[in-house]
Design a protein around this nucleic acid. Sequence first.
DNA 1: ATAACATATGAGCAAATGAACATATGATAA
DNA 2: TTATCATATGTTCATTTGCTCATATGTTAT
Lengths: 110, 110
Amino acid sequence: MKGHDHTKLLYDVNSQMPKDEVLAGLSELFAVFGDSTRIKILWALFESEMCVCAIAELLHMTQSAISHQLKLLKHAKLVGCRREGKTVYYYLADDHVRSIIDQGMEHISE
Amino acid sequence: MKGHDHTKLLYDVNSQMPKDEVLAGLSELFAVFGDSTRIKILWALFESEMCVCAIAELLHMTQSAISHQLKLLKHAKLVGCRREGKTVYYYLADDHVRSIIDQGMEHISE
DNA sequence: ATAACATATGAGCAAATGAACATATGATAA
DNA sequence: TTATCATATGTTCATTTGCTCATATGTTAT
């Protein structure tokens, strides 16, 4: 046999691991948080719901770029939106967003 | 003026936003969680510290690929390591890893 | 010293990603 | 209806990312 033996350990660890699809879903969620533009959008929405063009102005980015990112955030169920005439307001979907970001902040501020 | 006015809102939201470097650091942290290989490695380390070749075997990946990812995880201070002879054991750096992943799990299981 | 094992690292490449641009859709007002 | 504003979407392109391969480093035993 090549290398030393891990059979027992691997068996134990493996039995505790969630299915691949779950772990894939988890990493996809974190990947959404893993971009500074999207983090900024989420942080902005902590304060209040905002329309697309306001976010674009705030971040000094094009309306298109923001719209694309909002689509991702919405797909990840991190934000929701409501239409009011021509304007579409985006808001945080739930409190998980806040608690996930809070945990991240705790880690980096050490 | 082009488009409707957001001056007041933008001022308020902006005053609550952390500095760009902080938000960049935050997104970089989440980006580390945003890959299924790294999530699997972290999850494995929940059970026990493990050497590089054991992780590689567990995930059916090359030693090199795992080593590269461990370097990232270490740089993000999510894991630490200790050497014992030829073998290097990696372990979770602190409890933040667990709580961040827990929060993520809560969000996707709905 | 040399051999064998465990890990780390640099280069190269295919795939994924984020933004810009152009354009399409939706909604309101004239 | 047409014009205008707000948003959405498709395409393109440069950058980044994750893996493989080859090779280097580190450690122990002979």
